[in-house]
């Protein structure tokens, strides 16, 4: 009996707990590589011999870039699930879309924060309003924050799901603009172009970045899994509440009918 209660009242399972442990170990390993084992970015000027580069600030690369990529993944997943909901109208698609939007918004916020912390020493500014990559990412964050607000603001769950799906499909149009902005507006933005695309990374730096992708991917999967299960339990709980209310109402009506019948009989 106790075991049954545990399995229904928690979002955890043996598999998700194992995933959680692996993710935590992965995060610790990533931080070790990123902040201790990799070298700072230092190059020598060919004529003056002076050291140039990003120095220790480069270490944020190992978090910032994977966070950005998995923000894209989460929001694309949200859009796909939203489209699925509009076609199939099933709770699974809606719960997945909502979970992906919530986790993606957290990741997007972390992208903005890590980018800003990196920008202060490297760019000499916390934020640059003229930078297209920064602005389109901020717009993306605000649109999905709006999505989350809309989901909470609408009482009718079906209307909430339908409106949310439409907003998600519109908001995700910003993604290709975010991603391609440094190419489309080359030399019109402070943000550098893709490093991986031009293979300007190698050895331990490349390994640590790949480790970052793996670990942040696990973090996304773990958060998504639990958020999906929370959403599913909330939905079942709400359904159970409605079912209980209907049953109680029916019971009242039945008792009333009985009383009426008794009254008529008397």
């Amino acid at each position: 009996m106790t075991e049954t209660m545990e399995t229904t009242d928690t979002t955890g399972s043996r598999g998700s707990r194992l995933l959680g442990v692996v993710t935590l170990l992965g995060l610790a390993t990533l931080l070790l590589f990123a902040f201790a084992l990799t070298e700072p970015d230092v190059r020598l000027h060919p004529t003056t011999g002076q050291e140039i580069g990003q120095f220790d600030a480069v270490r944020l690369l190992y978090l910032h870039v994977p966070l950005a990529v998995f923000t894209y993944v989460a929001f694309v997943l949200c859009a796909v699930a939203s489209a699925g909901y509009l076609v199939k109208r099933t709770a699974w698609f809606d719960t997945m879309a909502y979970a992906a939007a919530e986790v993606g918004t957290v990741f997007c916020g972390l992208v903005l924060v890590t980018g800003s912390i990196w920008g202060r020493p490297v760019w000499n500014t916390w934020w640059e309003w003229g930078d297209v990559r920064l602005m389109t990412t901020l717009v993306l964050f605000l649109m999905f924050t709006g999505y989350l607000a809309l989901r909470r603001a609408t009482v009718d769950p079906r209307a909430s799901a339908r409106r949310g799906a439409v907003v998600a499909l519109v908001a995700v149009l910003d993604l290709p603009i975010v991603n391609r902005s440094v190419e489309w507006w080359e030399n019109r933005t402070l943000h550098q172009k893709s490093t991986l695309g031009e293979l300007k990374i190698q050895d331990l730096t490349l390994f640590t970045l790949m480790l970052g992708f793996l670990v942040l991917g696990l973090v996304l999967a773990w958060l998504l899994l639990h958020r999906f299960r929370v959403g599913w339990l909330e939905r079942e709980d709400a359904g159970h509440g409605v079912a209980t209310a209907i049953a109680e109402r029916r019971a009242d009506i039945d008792e009333g009918d009985v009383d009426a019948a008794v009254g008529e009989g008397a």
């Binding site: 070298e39 190059r43 020598l44 000499n124 640059e128 402070l190 550098q192």
Partner: peptide, 20 residues
């Protein structure tokens, strides 16, 4: 007002010269 426009080169080698 000055901001730095950094490149996308993250190749780290001991004593590596910058591409100028």
């Amino acid at each position: 007002h000055m901001v730095v426009k950094h490149d996308n080169d993250y190749r780290v080698e001991e004593g590596r010269q910058a591409d100028i």
